[in-house]
Design a protein around this nucleic acid. Structure first.
Lengths: 340, 340
DNA sequence: CTGTTAGCGCGTTCAT
DNA sequence: ATGAACGCGCTAACAG
């Protein structure tokens, strides 16, 4: 490994002079700069940023903790984060928690030991205690997508309540009265918000929600399949399904296919979160769209600005709008089914 | 920030003793260990792994450079890499190159400065020169998915030739004689291999390849759309389309839909790389499947084993099999179209 | 078993 | 404009 000393020796100067060249100090003559630069190039010297981090008390590294990078929604968020971080000269460490709180804590410890500058976190649940760890170490955090009951840190998320409201209202306007919500597990803010948006739309339409139409499962295809299967067996059977996440949507779709139900003729289906392939799935899926990439960018920008200002300051909330993307998976309820 | 000295002071021992406790040295009495551990817990001390890296000459960090994490294929690979790295106590830095060689070099420099232990790289093209940089710094690399003309490092990839051969052979067996290959850009090994597999199948079937049926574009939906559109205008029009990547497949699918061609009645379509949603797309896509997750795991294991053995050794190649997943997007060519 | 010394590569501080 | 000395947090090598 070539060090600053090797360069100094070759250029016939002191190590500190090389350091000044690297860090673009002005107190240096052009001639010396030239000589040092030549030596640097000749040796292929790359400054050890570990030592730099050591002295500067910052590593230039951020971490992103998502539940599962395999979910296209998080993938897109991650891309936004990495783009923004990279542009600012930061490196990004990726962590998958699989919604497991122990993993969150385990990663926190490793990241803090690495003296990471900041953390973007998708919490595994409503428990805010793990966050005490980075906060005690003065490491700024931004909570992504899901909000915690205690506002300890900045947060950037999308308006799930609004998204669910828009979808439900749209289904109501199509004439549906029996709408099932296939939701994720309780104890996650987005799940609660989606329930709230769903209930608000029903309420505004003067409809009394049927509690059996409000299902809780997991954010997986299997769970979506099983929830949809249960719903299809209900009496009276809902005329529309609202899946609260992309995986649940796919599972529900599979269940409908297996039951030979045509979408949207026999039953309507709406989802949450868009996918590049959604416009190929037949029928093209109607969904609530969250600005995933932008969320990643905004969260990273917020985090970087915190790093700059040093002072802690009041936690900030950025809430991005969710919109309705109408395609072809929803229609007016068929007369046959809707004869109540 | 609490340091090893703070702990030592509180426990009434020397810093090195604390170090021994942290690193589970055996040369330490149970009583002292207890006392030190109490002090550690009391102060909430987390060893600064930056300093440890400094001393140990290894950082416990790996990097994964993919073209675009947004592509589900790379996402799955990345998940395999992160799982394996994390299990071994390593952190993973994520990099997106967007197929741009300059970005590869830029990331290389940043990663080497960070004293990264090893790099998993998906090369942007056939140019192996950027690899000289990490190699000069003794940083082990594993080339992922695409092989380079010069075998400088280990590589882990899937058998693209085999995958393309299997798909083409399958189409031939269905009776197709005019099969268009919608491929990626030249200068990438997987593209060349897929062409070779395609040609081999044709040759074994005694068919003279029509050069106009062999198209090159990019690994994007837009390119897939435009290649498919061009193909549909050809005389005679191919009876089957083989898209060499998932994005190309989607673009081709869109083109077929816009031309009101029913798959597989009017025309057959086969793809490369599976997606979770492929079994929902109508008709369910027939594809060549590469073991993406396993590829990520194997590559990381190989890299980690290199780190252990220290000595450089001969570059190793791991080539994983590609299989054919038959679903419903291919059928025998229709008589109407095939009357040549 | 425990402690002392020294040094990893770099940048801050203070001299020259 | 340039350099010497010191120290960041930790641990290897060598005492004791």
């Amino acid at each position: 490994m070539t060090t600053i000393r090797d360069v100094a020796r070759l250029a016939g100067v002191a190590p500190i002079t090389v350091s000044r060249v690297i860090n673009h100090s002005h107190y240096i003559s052009d001639e010396t700069r030239q000589r040092v630069q030549t030596a640097i190039d000749q040796l292929g010297y790359v400054p050890n940023s570990l030592s730099q981090s050591f002295r500067w008390k910052q590593t230039g590294m951020l971490a992103l903790m998502v539940t599962d990078i395999t979910n296209p929604f998080w993938t897109t968020v991650a891309r936004g984060v990495e783009d923004t971080a990279s542009d600012a000269g930061y490196s990004l460490i990726l962590c998958n928690t699989d919604e497991r709180p122990e993993e969150v804590t385990r990663y926190f410890q490793a990241l803090l030991a690495r003296q990471i500058d900041g953390i973007l976190l998708v919490p595994a649940n409503n428990d805010f205690l793990p966050l005490k760890l980075p906060l005690a170490h003065q490491t700024p955090c931004v909570v992504l997508d899901r909000s915690l009951p205690e506002k300890l840190t900045d947060e950037v998320r999308c308006n799930s309540e609004q998204g669910a409201f828009l979808v439900t209202k749209y289904l109501l306007e199509l004439g549906h009265r029996k709408i099932a919500l296939l939701n994720g597990p309780n104890g996650i803010s987005t799940v609660q918000e989606r329930t709230q948006g769903y209930l608000r739309a029903l309420k505004e339409a003067g409809i009394n929600p049927n509690p059996q139409y409000l299902l809780h499962g997991y954010f997986t295809m299997e769970s979506g399949f099983s929830m949809a299967s249960r719903v299809l067996a209900m009496e009276p059977r809902p005329t529309a399904l609202f899946a609260a996440n992309n995986f649940i949507t796919y599972g529900a779709m599979k269940a409908l296919q297996e039951n030979h139900l045509n979408i949207p003729r026999d039953i309507s289906l709406a989802g949450f979160d868009d996918l590049p392939s959604n416009f190929l799935v037949e029928p093209f899926l109607t969904v609530a769209v969250q600005p995933a990439y932008e969320m990643g960018c905004r969260a990273t920008e917020l985090l970087l600005s915190r790093l700059k200002q040093k002072s802690v300051g009041q936690p900030e909330s950025i809430i991005l709008p969710t919109s309705l993307l109408v395609r072809q998976s929803c229609a007016a309820p068929s007369i046959l089914i809707n004869q109540d």
